[in-house]
Design a binder for these strands. Structure first.
Lengths: 334, 334
DNA sequence: TTGAAAGCGGTACCAT
DNA sequence: ATGGTACCGCTTTCAA
């Protein structure tokens, strides 16, 4: 920056101001810009952050980037935060709370302006870390009973119950559930819980649950899960799957066996992934606006940042909960 | 850090050393660690980077994080780089070279140790920026004629040609191609080029190309593309699609119309996505090790970093090209 | 093994 | 509108 300053015949401060787009006469600005271009100068973000005490990072943690759900959410966050000059520091927790903790600790070293997490489950250490950091936090994809700070999501339990009611409304009584076997996918577990609760509430008899494969289960687990379900409960009339991906796999298995969907058995998914709308038959599902969750979370963070600016320097925990709407989308499969 | 130091009764330097895991007596180390825990101290990465002149960032640019292709590649990079204490700064170019340039410029501000880009196409400004930065660069998913530095990928042209040969080997002659309409997906364009070249080379008559939808096209574009193809060239015997996603959409459309795949028309994809193995019929495709591309790219970067350490401080461009293997996977659809 | 001082490259603050 | 100076929090370097 000194080089640029001397080449332009001004002080470092002026260069800094031009870069920040603050007060500067046109001629000065032009000269500085010319010097910058000539030298190929790129300002050092670390120095800036250190000096000003504020970085331009937003830490974002999702369980998996390969799930379209979460990559859509990240897109939403990007759409809102990037225009504000913020940069996303994206981490993939791989559905592990320990890994989440490790990543939070690491990202905190970069003094992020705010943090977006997925889910309501975190280790005690993570909570402590976050509390001490004092930055705005938003938890996405769930409705925590006791949010760390803000939340943007919906109740996976309620959404699953709604799907059971939908299937029951179609006249089905012997309804099964297909989900993953691990205990790490909290949203999947909530959907299972919702299924069980509503089955009981409606008096639909014993739950028929097949849990198979590491969560989150994906397309390839749908087929064996459907196979198992049909073996254990051959008279099953409908199945709800923890996600559209497993529903798709289940439906493909039915096609292979010549079992008509929904004629012989109805299959429903969850999430309204792209595949649900364009496979054959199309999949009845619960639509969730994953991109919208990202946008809303971004908005919430920006709002927190804004009134942090206004009031004291420290953010006061506010417990703002944003509820995301969802709904059953009726298609061909159920 | 001063607080930690005084609480532990040592100097800042000792704290710094303990954090870096360097020489320190056991008792000192323990005391410092206790102080750190007590205060919930988290070292400031920006200050460290500024002072040491080296960050722990690796800049990674992919066209889209929602494509499983690229998210797998990012996973591969993570697997290799994270254990080395490096952190990925992930950017999504959205298939735009201008956006890539903007992101490169922004990421360069963080003084990344090295950079992974996707593809061989970049703006002139991006190349200049990269050259001036002097950090190791790896281009992924392609085999650039003139790599910026290193490359890890394969020829999409050759891979597409191989698929045409495979289809021709199955006795098909009237072979069509389904791809995206935009000019931004270079890998998709290369596959189209390969298709055209091999059709000509084998004397299979005029190419039958349907280009539809913003690249990269996805499942939902497969159906209308197949519809158009069948309208324009009803006697088509086989179709190769730019990716498994569009192949899937095309196959679903056939099912809807009662057209047997591969009986009446053979459909091949590209990429060996998960869906290709578990839909019905399963999709014949070209398998590419997306995760492996990430790992290899990570290895290449680490190697460059290592001998940068050894020799002079500046990295000498080396033009190391790593070729990734691919191959036709025969399944049911073609 | 440990400590003191300098300085990394910017920005805040105050003065001009 | 512009410049001077201190300082952000850490690591490097050198000395003890």
């Amino acid at each position: 920056m000194s080089d640029v300053a001397s080449l332009a015949g001004v002080s470092k401060m002026t260069v800094s101001r031009v870069l920040a787009g603050r007060s500067a006469s046109e001629s000065t600005r032009a000269r500085v810009q010319r010097a910058i271009d000539e030298l190929g100068y790129v300002a050092d973000a670390a120095a800036g952050a250190l000096s000003s005490g504020r970085s331009s990072f937003v830490a974002v943690l999702v369980p998996s980037m390969s799930s379209s759900n979460f990559s859509d959410t990240v897109s939403g966050l990007t759409a809102v935060l990037e225009p504000q000059g913020l940069e996303l520091l994206i981490g993939d927790t791989d559905y592990s709370l320990e890994r989440e903790e490790r990543l939070v600790r690491q990202m905190l070293r970069h003094q992020p302006r705010c943090i977006a997490l997925t889910g309501a489950q975190h280790t005690e250490a993570t909570r402590t870390l976050l509390a001490r950091s004092g930055v705005p936090v938003v938890e996405m994809w769930d409705q925590p009973a006791h949010p760390i700070d803000m939340s943007v999501g919906f109740s996976n339990v309620s959404a699953a119950r709604e799907m059971v009611r939908y299937l029951a409304g179609k006249g089905h009584r012997r309804i099964g559930f297909i989900g993953g076997a691990s205990e790490l996918d909290w949203r999947g577990l909530d959907r299972l819980k919702g299924y069980q609760m509503e089955m009981k509430a409606l008096g639909l008899g014993e739950p028929r649950v097949v849990r198979l494969g590491d969560s989150p289960i994906t397309m390839s687990h749908g087929a064996p899960a459907m196979t198992e379900l049909l073996e254990r409960w051959p008279d099953t009339e409908a199945v709800m799957c923890v996600s559209d991906l497993s529903a798709f796999g289940a439906i493909m298995e039915c096609q292979r066996r010549g079992i008509a969907v929904p004629g012989k058995i109805a299959v429903a998914g969850f999430g309204n992934f792209e595949i649900a709308a364009c496979c054959h038959p199309t999949i009845t599902t619960v639509s969730v606006d994953a991109y919208g969750i990202g946008r809303r979370a971004g908005d919430a963070l920006l709002a927190a940042l804004a009134d942090e600016e206004g009031e004291s320097a420290t953010h006061t925990r506010r417990t703002v909960k944003t509820r995301i709407h969802y709904g059953v989308v009726e298609r061909e499969s159920a």
